[in-house]
Write a protein that binds this DNA or RNA. Structure first.
Length: 127
DNA sequence: TTTCTGACA
DNA sequence: TGTCAGGA
């Protein structure tokens, strides 16, 4: 693992910092955390600590939710990403099922981009 | 002061 | 999701 990835994985950001970085409420961040969508660490005093990688994930989760996905669906998307990465890391060949999953992801992504512009037209985007 | 959990609206 | 309580 490169040093760069290592730094991004370092959990050193407290709740207040993540709130500013994501412009989300602590309530929302804790909710994603409780749902197991992000894996924060804890200090000896039970305070949550997040990494820059976590911040990216949180923003991604929120985008999915804004686009109308449910928590369960976001979980599935993350699961696929995890499997995809594990597959890449182990450098295995692709099974037919893997190929189908890839295609499914691409279709989902295409649909997401379409919905994106749709939402923008409706003025639903705050940023 | 900041963050935590649980609970209610 | 916002917000309040009560504690660390």
């Amino acid at each position: 693992m490169s040093e760069k990835v290592l730094r991004k994985s370092l959990a050193v950001l407290p709740m207040g910092t993540v709130m500013k970085l994501t412009s989300l409420s602590s309530r929302q961040i804790r909710y994603y955390d409780d749902q197991g969508l992000v894996h924060s660490k804890r200090t000896s005093g039970n305070r949550r600590l997040y990494s820059l990688e976590n911040v990216d994930q949180i923003l991604e989760i929120h985008n999915y939710l804004v686009e109308g996905m449910t928590i369960a669906q976001v979980k599935r998307v993350f699961e696929k990403q995890r499997r995809r990465k594990a597959l890449h890391d182990s450098n295995q060949s692709l099974s037919d099922e893997d190929v189908r999953e890839y295609l499914k992801d691409d279709i989902l992504k295409a649909g997401r981009l379409y919905d994106d512009s749709d939402l923008k037209q409706q003025g639903k985007y705050l940023k």
